[in-house]
Design a protein around this nucleic acid. Sequence first.
DNA 1: GTGAAAGCGCTAACAG
DNA 2: CTGTTAGCGCTTTCAC
Lengths: 343, 343
Amino acid sequence: MTKSITLNDIAIKLNVSKVTVSKALRNHPDISENRRREIKSVASQLGYIPNFVARNLSSKKTRTIGVIVPVIANSFFADIIESIYNCAFKNDYNIILAVSQEDSEKERKHLETMLSMRVDGVIISIAEHSENKDFFNIIKKRGIPIVFFDRTIDEKEFSSVTLSNKDGAFKAVQKAIENGYSKIGHIAGWKDSNIGRDRYRGYKQALKKSGIKLNSDWVLFSGFGKKDGYDSFMKMHQENKLPEILFAVTFPVALGIQEAAKEVGVNIPKDLDIICFGDSKLNDYLNPSISCVTHNTTEFAEAAFNLLLKQINAGDKFADEHLEIETKLLLKETCIKNIKDTK
Amino acid sequence: MTKSITLNDIAIKLNVSKVTVSKALRNHPDISENRRREIKSVASQLGYIPNFVARNLSSKKTRTIGVIVPVIANSFFADIIESIYNCAFKNDYNIILAVSQEDSEKERKHLETMLSMRVDGVIISIAEHSENKDFFNIIKKRGIPIVFFDRTIDEKEFSSVTLSNKDGAFKAVQKAIENGYSKIGHIAGWKDSNIGRDRYRGYKQALKKSGIKLNSDWVLFSGFGKKDGYDSFMKMHQENKLPEILFAVTFPVALGIQEAAKEVGVNIPKDLDIICFGDSKLNDYLNPSISCVTHNTTEFAEAAFNLLLKQINAGDKFADEHLEIETKLLLKETCIKNIKDTK
DNA sequence: GTGAAAGCGCTAACAG
DNA sequence: CTGTTAGCGCTTTCAC
């Protein structure tokens, strides 16, 4: 077990001070080209590995950002994490990952840990029912930049990057109307979550624009997971309140609907059509694949990361920003009434 | 921007030394029940958040482990990460995540970063062509425990947790034989990777046991991703060298085969049957779903984490261990020749 | 039980 | 350009 070598070891060997070594290794302009080369060569020859813990303590920067997501084994978040991860790597930042598992308390704990680890910033997509509003304020007061993505809190004093939730939902529902549907239901997300609320708004707006009255029998509010879609469908089905088409608040919800429908022999899209907000790698393997509102993951992740970076670099004099990433309607094998009709 | 409060602030407020506060907060037996309660109450009232950077520097422990995987947006690794993540959380460890993207150099960089961050240990699944053998030795010499999982290096002086690769492959191929196939091909992984090599061994052994001669026309070596499966199938197809059934080294490879087959009008499982090592959430949505060798993700992740933990706690006097996680054959809608025959 | 002293390895600020 | 001084906030002896 070799003792790990320090700045001092290099300094002694070269008969310079450890400050000089430190500067040389960090390419500080103070040090001459020659010295630097010399020092670096000795460092690598000795197998020097800087101690970031010490560096971070003294510099009060960690070049580490915390990323908190509600789930990870989910194509949407896995993809985003991978993208954020790439951005971080390119910019020489490290990532501490945490998963809240939709649990507000765990989320809180992770945030505390990240503060303790002195991350330079946090990117977070909050849990379904996050109750950490006050804690986000504490973080802010400490001067730690925080960027909310996808699932945000409502306070406008926090930077956020979201999808164009309302607009995307609007486009989806409008397409359903265009395709001849008028009995349009919505398996919606919790209204206290921005994505639930805004997609619901888009849904309502599209109906309104076409003069269709909202039938509350066809609207159910719950979570964003597969099970929520499954349960909601089953409820509507049992109560015999199925519309012609359901607009699902997320892809997993649509997946749950599809699974439930299959189970009780409701054919999609013949007996019940669906469309949803959000795509997945899985979609192309579904039968039928689901027409959906989609987005560019890389663009989304980069926006969040760059916003955080900007905020980190700006320090106090940063004004919060709220970015919205454009969404597109992607037509696949559902939401196709006209097509069926003309066959 | 509030100044962050330190041990000292609490100490002053209570007129004790910061050592006492430090001990109380860490439940050190030195401190009396009363004092501890008092101190903790003041700490929380002041909104004290410990500075792990300082703590880590002085204690030389970080309660952080590094996890390196080749990819993340892949059901196998996403699931494992989530499971490892859960273990870590339960045991009060933090995770630094890194993705090598199958790139040996990135892998190396990540390892260095983790050493610099002074992680207490590393769990890694190496890149397809990792050339960091010497670096793993450096890590070991530094006394940093490292556990390889799934994709390991061959050196026996490193702890590892793998699936029962040879045995699983054997079972899969034997099932193909049982079902009446004799022309059995293998889209194999690189032979220099343990999973490629061992699954290939299982394949050969199953053939041998039944007295079937291996036909090298039907065996192709490449990587572990979807594209590799796609390309391999295309090659065999163009050269008109397709067997009756292909055993794919991983699920993504099988997926690639399926996609390619569809493209050129080869029906699976009628014209060409398949079976593979490894399952995926996606599998149930495939048509046909693929019979495969599967495992228990939680068991796998826990084994890796616990082994690392054991190693961390044991310090120098730890002897390397090599665990193998049992695999099972899961029959779905492929590898069904007999079923077809008897129809 | 409590605390004073020493230092983890590094960097910031300043002086030469 | 180079080096000295002084910590960063905490834990670890070890003495009381």
